[in-house]
């Protein structure tokens, strides 16, 4: 089935002096997606988003949004996009309302004051609409950032790390809002994040990028298949366990053995069974840690990026 492509990025590259920020990136976002754009800090997420919004121009490659070339249809495309790019900055000397009014006026359509108040209500800032933005906390600015992205009722919403700096309650509110916008308002959402868990909770499709290019792409369900866990089992004698399992169906699931740590790829419902079998056969199981392969991978590249 040919789905409606909302964003189509082909062979996108951007270099800053010696650093290749984005390197031959390809991705597709379809209508109705909540698309997780995942990568560690410095992976090229923001550079990609800036190119999607024409803040910076690509060295190479093509961006199509709503099936049209961004380069040639910039204004038409931007009128249907709402976005937060990095931290939410506003005209601090103006009120929240006035900021939205100004941004609304240049959004290509008439924005009523009723609409402004509705959007402020959606992000729970309606009581502070008169306050100057410079008096706002980071969380309030983050919410106002979402408000300005929604003010002109865009089809595509691009959110760059929208939960950065928020407390768990604030993070949850934003997640709920994303789900609401996707489910109730049928928006397509492009969500960048460096936290896998966050993407997993809201996205249906995702891509992981590192060093400017795509590493993994697909449906979140498939990529994070909860039925196939990577389970690290720590035992007292791995040789004995190997022998014991050699005749069982679990032999196929064994991936690696290092010292007394054995890694199995297992469906979730078999974890308990394996444990029971080992214990019944006199094996001392010190620890049984289920992890997911993608999570491991992501953790590795994130650690590399931050280390």
């Amino acid at each position: 089935m040919e789905q409606n492509k909302i964003i189509e990025i082909k062979n996108l590259s951007k270099q800053f002096k010696d650093v290749k920020a984005v390197d031959d990136l390809n991705l597709n976002v379809y209508k109705g997606d909540v698309f997780g754009f995942l990568g560690p800090n410095g992976a090229g997420k923001s550079t990609t988003i800036r190119m999607l919004l024409s803040l910076i121009s690509p060295d190479n490659g093509e961006i199509k949004i709503f099936d049209k070339s961004l380069k040639e249809n910039r204004i038409e495309i931007l009128s249907k996009i709402g976005a937060i790019v990095e931290k939410p900055d506003f005209y601090g000397y103006l009120s929240a309302y006035k900021n939205l009014e100004i941004l609304g006026k240049i959004s290509g359509r008439e924005i009523s004051s009723k609409k402004i108040m509705e959007v402020l209500e959606l992000v729970s800032l309606e009581k502070r609409y008169k306050s100057k933005v410079k008096t706002f906390s980071h969380g309030m600015k983050q919410r106002l950032g979402i408000a300005q992205a929604l003010i002109h009722d865009p089809e595509l919403i691009i959110l760059d790390e929208p939960t950065t700096g928020l407390d768990p309650q604030g993070m949850k509110e934003i997640r709920d809002l994303i789900i609401y916008l996707s489910k109730e308002k049928n928006k397509t959402i492009f969500l960048s994040s460096h936290i896998l868990y966050e993407v997993e909770l809201v996205a249906n499709r995702m891509i992981i990028i590192n060093k400017g290019s795509a590493k993994v792409e697909g449906r979140v369900e498939d990529l994070l298949n909860a039925n196939k866990l990577r389970v690290a089992v720590e035992v007292d004698n791995s040789e004995k366990v190997k022998m014991l399992l050699s005749t069982t169906r679990w032999n196929e699931n064994l991936e690696t053995v290092a010292n007394n740590k054995m890694i199995f790829n297992l469906p979730q419902n078999e974890v308990a069974e394996l444990n029971k079998y080992l214990v019944e056969n006199g094996i001392l199981v010190n620890a049984l840690i289920p992890t997911r392969s993608l999570e491991d991978y992501f953790l590795t590249i994130t650690q590399k990026a931050s280390g």
Partner: peptide
């Protein structure tokens, strides 16, 4: 300085 280029230039204006 204010970082408001981002909310200004991402609007449908040239």
């Amino acid at each position: 300085t204010a970082g408001t280029y981002r909310i200004l230039i991402t609007r449908p204006i040239s």
